[in-house]
Design a protein around this nucleic acid. Structure first.
Lengths: 224, 224
DNA sequence: CGCTATGTGTGTACGGCGTACGCTAGTGTG
DNA sequence: CACACTAGCGTACGCCGTACACACATAGCG
């Protein structure tokens, strides 16, 4: 019991920007960004809605805070390592963060007010590529290709209207049901002969594509 | 004057799903999906909000309609052409659609109720790759890599907090302003030595990355 | 012509949202 | 003790999607 002040003061529960952000992340992870409403947040924290505005300027500022927390969760590329290893690991880490915090996907590169974790991350990636002999133009090429792919893959995987591979078959069937049989023969063949087969998992595609990209970038750097 | 019915009937303006969707696209293109509210739509069409519900089931059904219109705007891959040419052209067309209809980016692959244009498009792409000698596994690899990149690039470009290259310098400066000088040396060098230089345009990165991917896929198919 | 069924547009209302504004009560510093 | 500062609150406003019951025009039919 740290009771230095006279009266009992607050035994716990004092609000703070940190507590608000943590509650917001929990809501967002569970129900998407739209589940993050000031009223629900306040209720969960046992506080009136307007109390939140003492700690965040408005909903947009709150979201800026969420995004920087997400950036902070990305493993920075290991400084000394081979660039390909380092980029591969940071790509996988970024993908993991995006799948853990689906709400972040459209936001990570969209904030006009980036936080420190955001800037630190980009600084480290650029430094790693530069150290590996990429010139500025190749850094720009590599960054846009890698991040485009990573964000796009996470976006696609997150948005797929099914979760587990067991559901695929029924979802696919209900999608095609309203249309004449054989209207889309290639699509039907692709789904029935490959996608619904045991062992296929869309999530596995990520590393295949990543390696195609990394190999391509290496070749481009070496022939430049 | 096609006056077959007795009275003057309606001189114009009868509502229809088509008219509602067209109005919604205009709003979305101008102000994003959040600008598409039933009330604003109705006002623009000179009609009461609830009138819209005779033509769309609800806001979600309306968005399903928008997405299928976007799919319909993608040029299908030319059937007879070399696969690389065809994929390149369809990728560029898809990117153009996504940049024209930014609101579509998170939605194209997210609908549980895809429309006919959506299915027709995927059927054509799969058919083209199959005809070029890609086996089912390689079709899956190629599709996920290409679409991941295309969606991700569009997402990134759309979200960048600046539009024209002239603004880059000031935006970058205002981003870094709150932080100590030399806190992010690699990032600062990258921006000042490359991004703000005349002639650099992030939009140009798209085709560079696209060609890296297409070359990588070709190599993978041939060595399989 | 009149009668009736059908479908299109309307008015009202409800519950939820973000947040502006002004108040209160408790705290830390002199 | 006085006082400024701060955190939290209550109220209110103007948005949002949409449920529901109704008005009205039209079309089919005798």
């Amino acid at each position: 019991m740290t009771t230095r002040t006279t009266s009992r003061t607050e035994p716990r529960s004092r609000l703070s920007r940190e507590r608000v952000l943590r509650a917001a992340i929990a809501h967002a992870d569970a129900g998407g960004l739209e589940a993050v409403t000031m009223r629900r947040l306040a209720e969960g924290l046992g506080v009136a809605p307007m109390a939140l505005y003492r700690h965040v300027a408005n909903r947009d500022d709150l979201i800026d805070g969420l995004v920087d927390i997400a950036f902070d969760e990305i493993e920075l590329p290991v400084a000394g390592a081979d660039w390909k290893t380092a980029m591969r690991q940071r790509a996988i880490s970024l993908r993991d963060v995006l799948l853990r915090h689906r709400w972040a996907i459209g936001l990570m590169d969209a904030r006009a007010n980036p936080g420190p974790a955001n800037l630190r991350h980009h600084d480290a990636v650029i430094g790693n590529l530069r150290a590996a002999g990429f010139d500025m133009a190749m850094v720009a090429h590599a960054y846009s290709l890698l991040d485009g792919y990573i964000y796009g893959f996470a976006l696609t995987k997150t948005n797929l209207p099914f979760d587990a591979s067991e559901e695929v078959a029924e979802v696919a069937q209900s999608m095609l049901e309203p249309f004449p049989v054989n209207e889309y023969p290639n699509l039907v063949a692709f789904i029935s002969e490959h996608i619904v087969k045991p062992g296929y998992d869309f999530g596995d595609e990520f590393e295949y594509g990543l390696d195609v990209i990394l190999d391509g970038l290496e070749r481009a750097r070496d022939t430049a």
